[in-house]
Simulated scan of single mutants.
Amino acid sequence: MKFTLFAAAAALASTAVAFPITGDSVNCRSGPGTSYAVKKSYAKGHDVTITCQTGGTSVSGNSIWDKTSDGCYVADYYVKTGSSGYVKPKCSTGGGSCSAPKSNAATVDLIAEFEGFVAKVYIDATGHPTVGYGHLCTKSKCAEVGYPIPLSKANGKKLLATDMAKAEKCVTAMLNSKAVLNANQYGALVSLAFNVGCGAVQSSSIVTRLNKGEKAATVYPQEFPKWVHGGGKVLPGLVRRRNAEVALAKKAAGKALPC
């Protein structure tokens, strides 16, 4: 019995090992990615206890994010674990524990409708070269696109579907196993995140309610209409988009989450 108790205590101690932060003022976020809200910051040398690990935004080639005992996520790149791989179990609910489902065609079409299409490269209002359905170019002449420019609408939607991956991944990561969504309900939330940013959605009452097990059919009509403001004013375009997202979510479809 004594040996059993000692072994259990040793195992518990090994799981509670802390790891030092290697960067200066490293942010711990509400989800596994740089788009999530900052919950707190760690000073260099601060020891953190990791409860589980998951995939997220790549930081200098490392896409692992560590969930700390503080309940937030820090990029593993800034934590000295002694390994470039996983040293803790993968987070079992939410937190990117499964591959994000791809949005269906209805979701791609909805986002495309509201993003608008431009076949040639243009400079957007923020000064960034842009093409297609709002794709922000990362290389000269949008060389990363991989489709002939001027873009066809068909290729523009393929590019849009690729650009939506970030929103899909963070929506999947922010929801736990109590959040049950069909493909259209999932797509509506992806559209919202693509529009307003994943950090904003992750900290919203939408996600809080879904993660408590409330049904999307109840939550969406009550919560989505709140996201229609810009510059302190109600924007008609956002009203139309939120209405379209809620309408999409009301349509029957196969299960998307939990995966």
Rank of each mutant, 00 (worst) to 15 (best):
N27P: 14
E144A: 05
C259L: 09
E115A: 06
I64S: 00
T130F: 05
G116T: 00
G132A: 08
V48P: 03
V87D: 09
G213W: 09
G134Q: 06
D66K: 04
A100M: 11
G237N: 03
L189Y: 10
N182M: 07
L5E: 13
A249I: 10
K250M: 10
G237I: 06
S25E: 15
G55D: 13
G237D: 02
P225H: 04
A8C: 12
G146W: 05
A37T: 12
N184Q: 07
N176Q: 05
L181S: 06
A7G: 02
S152D: 04
T57Y: 13
V17D: 11
Y73K: 09
L210W: 07
Q185D: 02
G237R: 01
A193P: 08
A154F: 11
P32R: 09
P148S: 13
G82F: 02
K44P: 00
C91E: 03
V234E: 10
L181K: 06
A165P: 02
V228C: 05
T22H: 09
K255H: 15
E223N: 06
A9N: 12
S83Q: 08
G23M: 00
P150D: 02
S84I: 13
G94R: 07
A173G: 00
V17I: 14
E223A: 13
V171I: 11
V26A: 03
V131S: 00
S99G: 14
I123K: 14
A161Q: 12
I50A: 02
F194K: 01
V38C: 09
M174T: 08
M1I: 12
W227Y: 15
D163A: 12
K212Y: 06
P129R: 03
M164A: 11
Y122G: 01
T138R: 14
E168A: 10
E168H: 07
E223C: 06
N27W: 12
I149G: 00
S14M: 14
T107C: 07
K67P: 01
C142W: 08
T172E: 10
A165Y: 11
C72T: 01
G33A: 12
